[in-house]
């Protein structure tokens, strides 16, 4: 401990006083972070992870400078929970049965078909359960179950998880190697790859990650594997008018063109097909 002569106190006191306002100012600075009046879009992870929304949102901003869209990437189940609590203004989801329930319960305003892509069943290249070319998803899953081959499930109430459960319900009992990982599509694909397991994935996420995966697409093209996406405006949302504007834009020819073109450069094929083009 150092000895301080009394005459050094005034200097210390001044320094003490000089530093107080700096601390106070710094504490007040954080208050400037808050912002309001922005549209919150809860969107499925596949549209975020694939990069589709990175294309669509700036284009929408060009057309509608007054509206800012903030994207939260969550599973379809969680997105609808956000909508029910009023924490999201608009949803982009792919879980038709749950969407119908959401609308029936009066949580939604409008529900419009936006686009679709498809699911694939991927698995290890050596295909121990022999599902390659099985033709239908139900037959493929039945073979996986018969061999008790490992199968990785999202297990997170996402649209993909719901679809998978519906497919299992049609195919019969699940294999002993069935694992629920409770994570997003990317994580689930990585786990399946490391474990040499089969998995149901949307095509877009599979293609985006395929260079890091030891998985091949083994079953595709079954009509049951179609994956439609809808936009739903939340009834009583904070920014209801902006949500309507965005929903209308999302099904406009301009958005359809962007959706159709997305992914061709990177993957050699489009990842999503705008619904308008099917009609």
């Amino acid at each position: 401990m150092r000895f301080r002569p009394p005459d050094s106190f005034p200097g210390l006191r001044d320094r003490f006083r000089a530093r107080l306002p700096i601390l106070c100012a710094a504490l007040i600075a954080f208050a400037s972070c808050a912002r309001a009046d922005e549209l919150i879009l809860a969107s499925t992870t596949s549209t975020v992870d694939s990069g589709l929304l990175d294309e669509l949102i700036p284009a929408f901003a060009d057309d509608h400078a007054s509206t800012r869209v903030k994207v939260i990437g969550v599973g379809s189940g969680e997105a609808m929970a956000l909508g029910r609590r009023g924490d999201a203004d608009i949803l982009l989801v792919h879980s038709p049965v749950d969407e119908a329930a959401f609308m029936a319960a009066g949580h939604g305003g409008r529900r419009l078909p936006v686009m679709s892509n498809d699911y694939v069943i991927a698995g290890p290249p050596d295909d121990p359960a022999g599902i390659r070319g099985a033709g239908t998803a139900a037959l493929a899953l039945a073979r996986i179950a018969a061999r008790d081959a490992p199968f990785v499930s999202r297990g997170d109430s996402s649209g993909t998880h719901r679809k998978e459960m519906a497919l299992w319900a049609a195919a019969g009992p699940r294999p002993r190697g069935y694992t629920e990982v409770g994570q997003g599509m990317g994580e689930a694909l990585t786990i399946a790859s490391e474990r040499g397991a089969y998995i149901l994935s949307d095509r877009g996420t599979y293609l985006a990650l395929s260079h890091n995966l030891r998985l091949e697409v083994l079953v595709e093209g079954d009509p049951l594997l179609e994956n439609p996406y809808s936009v739903i405006t939340v009834r009583g949302a904070r920014h209801a008018a902006a949500a309507d504007t965005f929903a209308d834009w999302l099904v406009s020819p301009r958005a359809a063109e962007l959706i159709r073109a997305f992914g061709i450069e990177r993957f050699g094929e489009p990842l999503f097909h705008p619904s308008g083009s099917l009609r």
Binding site: I40, T45, V48, D49, S50, G51, D54, K70, V71, I72, G73, G184, M185, G186, E187, A208, L209, H211, N212
Partner: peptide, 24 residues
Amino acid sequence: GGNIAGETRVMTTAIVLETRRGNF
């Protein structure tokens, strides 16, 4: 935060997202 691009995306949530996207 919700990991919103340009608004609430910080290093740790960006690491989660980029890993999921395969951008190791």
